[in-house]
Nucleic acid binder design. Structure first.
Lengths: 106, 106
DNA sequence: ACTAATGATTAGCTATGGCTAATGATATGA
DNA sequence: TCATATCATTAGCCATAGCTAATCATTAGT
């Protein structure tokens, strides 16, 4: 599993994460996103391309604008991956609690 | 929210993600992790340092070894962050479905 | 047709980050 | 104490990635 998980890598950059979170709040145009961030429109477009390739966002043309939406595909994959790790962590935690009294270290 | 979220950035690198996933499977020593990966022990230790700083793993000394465990703190933070995005995505999806018939585009 | 606005793409710069090799520090065993 | 094993840290190298500036393409409005 998780051979790829490029979604996680994609959301590593703070600016790109900010772009994604803005879109998550509500669908937005490129111009709108650019106005909200301290980088150029070029940078935003480049981030959007990466987010698109990771299936984290989708573009929906609207006149001269491009409205970006969250894409559930990539977000769902990422969530599934994280859930597996989370479950494993819980298991491990349980196991530790259970064997807490039986230790013979020290 | 999500001012920081360095967990996500931390798990961006494939090797580091592999290290983390090995530990998630079960607690392991540095040597064990190194044997499982095509990088040097030095690289592994460096990755572990970053994972520690992001509160994604904890070290538990055991003789000359260091056994690494998952740390729920960072993983939990990351999960909470992702859950918020997920919820937002679901909302958006619902809204799109609801307005599907009422479109006047075209 | 002209102008303005949106957004994608490219070239080029720079900083960052992951890697190896080398070394240091600590614990174990004979 | 000497040799061995585990792990951390540092220096230095190199590839990658994000950024700006510049340009191109498309749409809207007049």
């Amino acid at each position: 599993m998780a051979n790829d998980m490029r979604q996680v890598a994609t959301l590593a950059d703070p600016t790109r994460r900010a772009v994604f979170e803005l879109i998550a709040e509500r669908p937005r145009s490129v111009a709108e996103i650019t106005r909200a961030l301290p980088v150029t429109q070029s940078a935003v477009s480049q981030h959007l391309k990466v987010l698109r390739e990771a299936q984290l966002v989708r573009a929906q043309p609207k006149g001269a604008s491009n409205i970006y939406h969250i894409d559930q595909a990539g977000l769902g994959q990422m969530r599934a991956w994280l859930d597996r790790l989370w479950a494993a962590a819980l298991d491990e935690f349980k196991r530790e609690i259970e064997t807490e009294g039986k230790e013979d270290n020290g």
